[in-house]
């Protein structure tokens, strides 16, 4: 049984269908990439899974249990954590306080009482270790609305991790990160997966997606059009079309890897 099952989910806004009968799963210990062109309905899918958006139709199951109508906060208690494409960091708190809040919420009042005698220093050390792990320790004392976008995204990840999630939903986590940071971030994702966390990631950086994902699902026009491992996805003509559009002479799929990179070299 898969940890997360999205089953035939439809979301309509007015007359526009944002998600069209999408079905996919995510497994514990695996990184699942959710890719597709802009406006394909990826973020809406995430909103449905995390409970911020009620689907018009369909079901979401976590660990075998139907959570389609479960309130947002209860999903977190069942091990779900997510980050946001448009940042939702607590801007007037410091980076460290952001994680502290997550920890406080996770532990709840009861947990809070249990840790009363515990030295604050040790809790602080836990938090700092978390910040270190995602790579934002340098910003620990800065206000969250003053750190670069990339760092704020990593901070959101740290916040999720404080709640020890079994399922992580990451919405474009790498935008705003530079090349080295992206590499480190990929390593972190692999580490988390190795620890047993299920990760679903909406992402545009294909190097990252191809590098870390076990499975990739391609969403286009609200519909899952392809599923497979990175190599299969890369050579799938439907994916080529979804990303590059049709052309009259429908370009051969295998031509992709052979293309010269002359223009690209200008970039670095």
């Amino acid at each position: 049984m898969s940890l997360l099952e999205v089953d035939d989910v439809v979301v309509q806004f007015g007359g526009v269908t944002a998600v069209d009968h999408a079905s996919f799963t995510a497994e514990a210990g695996q990184v699942t990439g959710l890719i597709g062109p802009n406006g394909a309905g990826k973020t809406t899918c995430f909103n449905v899974i995390s409970g911020l958006q009620r689907p018009t139709q369909g079901h979401v199951r976590l660990d075998g249990r139907d959570i389609t109508r479960m309130p947002v906060h209860r999903r977190s208690k069942r091990g779900m954590g997510r980050t946001f494409q448009r940042l939702e960091a607590f801007g007037s708190l410091t980076v460290r306080e952001n994680v502290q809040v997550a920890l406080d919420i996770h532990r709840g009042l009861a947990g809070r009482l249990r840790t009363v005698g515990r030295p604050a220093r040790r809790q602080r050390a836990d938090i700092d270790a978390l910040l270190e792990r995602v790579g934002v320790a340098a910003y620990a004392d800065d206000r969250a609305d003053s750190v670069p976008t990339g760092a704020a995204r990593l901070l959101e990840l740290a916040r999720c991790l404080a709640a020890e999630p079994t399922l992580l939903l990451l919405d474009e986590p790498s935008s705003g990160l530079d090349e080295t940071e992206t590499d480190d971030f990929g390593d972190l994702l692999r580490e988390l997966a190795a620890e047993g966390t299920a990760i679903v990631m909406v992402e545009h950086d294909m190097d990252l997606v191809m590098g870390v994902c076990d499975t990739i699902r391609v969403l286009d026009f609200g519909e899952v059009i392809a599923i497979g491992d990175p190599a299969a996805i890369r050579s799938d003509p439907r994916v080529q079309q979804a990303y590059l559009g049709y052309s009259d002479e429908t370009a051969p799929a295998d031509g992709v890897d052979e293309t010269p990179t002359t223009v690209l070299e200008v970039t670095r």
Binding site: H73, S76, K77, E88, A89, F90, G91, I105, A163
Partner: peptide, 24 residues
């Protein structure tokens, strides 16, 4: 303290608080 941080957090982003497990 802990409640104050949550208050500010809730003011800054109710959505994030919700997904972190706070019953707003």
């Amino acid at each position: 303290g802990v409640v104050g941080r949550m208050l500010i957090a809730m003011r800054d982003s109710p959505a994030a608080c919700g997904t972190l497990g706070l019953d707003l």
